[in-house]
Design a protein around this nucleic acid. Sequence first.
DNA 1: CAAAGTTAATAGTATTACTATCACATTTTG
DNA 2: CAAAATGTGATAGTAATACTATTAACTTTG
Lengths: 223, 223
Amino acid sequence: MQNLLSNLKITLNEKLYVKDPETSELGRNILKNSILLMNEIGFEAFTFKKLGEKIQSNESSIYRYFENKHKLLVYLTSWYWSWMEYRMVLATTNISNPVEKLEKAIKLVTENVADDQTTPHINEEILSRIIVEEFAKTLMTKEVDTENKEGFFLVYKRVINRIIAIIQEVNPEYPFAKSLASSIVEGALHQHFLKNHLKTITNLSEKECATDFYTDMVKKILL
Amino acid sequence: MQNLLSNLKITLNEKLYVKDPETSELGRNILKNSILLMNEIGFEAFTFKKLGEKIQSNESSIYRYFENKHKLLVYLTSWYWSWMEYRMVLATTNISNPVEKLEKAIKLVTENVADDQTTPHINEEILSRIIVEEFAKTLMTKEVDTENKEGFFLVYKRVINRIIAIIQEVNPEYPFAKSLASSIVEGALHQHFLKNHLKTITNLSEKECATDFYTDMVKKILL
DNA sequence: CAAAGTTAATAGTATTACTATCACATTTTG
DNA sequence: CAAAATGTGATAGTAATACTATTAACTTTG
C-alpha cells in the first residue's frame, strides 16, 4: 500500500487553480503551509498576505496559483476527499461480503486520521482537522450551484456515491440509501466538531471517533 | 395555541446585542429586514451598510443594536431555536407515550417550516431557510469555545437536550442518545441543504422534508 | 545564448468593518 | 415647562482585506 500511494498523483478539477500547485516547489509550499496556517488561525483570519509572510514569499505569487482563498479551501478539501476515495477503493475492493465492505468504508470516513507519510507536502492529520472545522463553508456560499455545475464538489459526491452503492448491496430494499450515506459522511464530521467544542451534546469523548455510533446505526437500519 | 404564542416574548442572551432589538420600532425593523436581506444575498455579502439602505436608516444606527453581523446571525438563529423549543414543549407535554413524543419532536425539527403569523416582525419560513444555509457558520469560528462559555448556543443545546431526554425515555439502554439527537437536528438541516443544492446525494425531492427518513431511522435504532 | 516563463517587490484600488463626532428630534423627569 | 437624557441620522475617517497591475531580476528551455 505504501508503494501504491507513493505513485499516487492526485489530480483535481483544473478550474480550482490558476496554476497547478503540485508542479512547483512554491506550489507545494503553498499547499503545505496553507494547511498549517489555516489550522492555526482559522479560515476567516487566513489571508494570502499572512501566508506569504509564513513561506517567505509574496502575496502576489500566491495569487498566481489560486484566485482566492475560497478556491484554495475547495482545492484542499477536494484533495482530502480524493485521498479518502483512494483509500476507500483500496480498502473495499476484493471484499465480497457487502456488510464487511460497508464496515470498512464507514471506518474510513468516521475514524481519526493520521498523517500519511507518502505525501510529504500534505499533513493529512492536520488537513482532517480543517475538514472538520471548515468543510461546510466550501458548500455554504451563494455560489454553490454555479460551482457545483463546474464540478467543484465531484470528488466529495463520488465518495458518497461509493457508500450509496455499498448500502444498496447490503440492503436493496432500503429506500433512503442516498440520505443515509450523506448523513454518515457529514454527520461524522459534525460529531468530531461537537467532541472538540460542544461536548455535552455528543457521546464521543476525547480521543474517541464516530465509528461505533455509525456502525451500530447502519446495522440496525439495514440488517 | 395562537393565544399562547401571541403572549410569547422570546428572551435571549443579553450578550448577543448592544441594545435589545425587540424594544423599538427600528430594532424590530432591523430583525425583519436582516432576515430578508440575508436570505437574498447570503451572509457573506450581507453588510450593515446595505441593510441600512434597505430600511432607510443608517449603518451607525444598526451598530447601536448589534456589534457585528456575526452576533446578529447568532441572535437570529437563537431566536429560531427558542421558537422551536417553545413549539416542541407545546407539542410534547401531556403525551404519555414516549414513542409518540419522539415522533412529534422529530417531525418538528425535520419538517418544512411555515410562517408563524403571531410574530409580525419575524418570517419563520424565510428564517428557516437562513438556518439551513447559514447556521453552521455560527458555530464554525475560532471563537466558538469562548462564545459557548458565554452561553451563545444555550438555546440550541437545550433543544437537543430535550430530544436526548425523550430518546432515553424510549430506550434507556441505547448508548448513543446524545450523538443520535445532535445528528438528527444537524442532519435534517443538512438534508434540506442537499435537497436545495446537491440533489444527487439525498433522497429528499423538491418539497419533501426529512421526517420520513429520520422517523424510520430512530424506530429501527431504538425499538 | 536568446526567448519564455517564474517569482519577488512595490504600488495602487475598492470595499469592508468598523469608530467617532455632531446635529437634531423626541421623550423623560425634576 | 425647562433641562436632561436618549435615539437616530449624517458625515467623516481608519485599518485591514482582497485583490490587480507593473516591473525587474532570475531560471529554465529550445
